[in-house]
Design a protein around this nucleic acid. Structure first.
Length: 180
DNA sequence: GAAGTGAGCCCCG
DNA sequence: CGGGGCTCACTTC
């Protein structure tokens, strides 16, 4: 049985679902009804139920404290083979770093599939844990983000601020100087 | 099967 | 910067 709960996070309310300890869904919840519809659609062929708020609060706090070691062991997204291979690649991107859609495509062995990679990344069902926010365009642009570009920027900003190596210089340099 | 659609990329002007 | 052509997974006729 998949258990789903509403969580508070510094980046907004979240909807998190898990089964036997593995997260299979996580989204930012800007519109309550819309988010619940999205969850219902995603789990359409599965048994699931809502449980009390904050049941997954440990996951959020671990994300904040960067205490989650091997993401691959606590995440289990539902998707096609291709999608899962793309999402697996995202997990390898280190905290506070970024990659481009093309780099991910090359990593998967097909430089020409950058567009397909973008589409697959856009379908990532597990926000934040599977760090699709760390993927940007080769041109230096931000690309898109299902849960709002501002949130993508916020996540990256927070990661850079939190990361010890960049902590100092961040105060002097803007993350994306040309992107407002 | 044949079109249409993307969170892309590259080239050219 | 801006449009055309290219590509590929996936969806929808």
């Amino acid at each position: 049985m998949i258990l789903c709960s509403i969580e508070e996070s510094p980046f907004g309310k979240m909807l998190i679902a898990s089964e036997t300890g593995k997260v299979c869904y996580a989204s930012f919840m800007d519109d309550r009804q819309e988010s619940l519809n999205g969850l219902r659609f995603y789990l359409i062929h599965h048994e699931w139920q809502m449980v009390q708020d904050n049941m997954h609060s440990d996951i959020v706090s671990k994300l904040m404290d960067r205490q989650i070691g091997n993401l691959e062991t606590i995440v289990n997204p539902i998707g096609t083979e291709f999608q899962r291979s793309v999402w697996r690649e995202l997990i390898k991107i280190p905290f506070a770093e970024t990659r481009t859609y093309l780099q991910i495509a090359i990593e998967l062995g097909s430089a020409s599939s950058a567009r397909a990679v973008g589409t697959a990344i856009g379908a990532n069902p597990i926000a934040w844990l599977i760090p699709c926010h760390r993927v940007i365009q080769t041109s230096g642009g931000m690309g898109g983000y299902r849960w709002g570009l501002d949130r993508k920027k916020d996540l990256l900003k927070w990661e850079k601020e939190t990361h010890p190596i960049w902590k100092k210089q961040f105060t002097q340099t803007r993350l994306f100087p040309d992107k407002g």
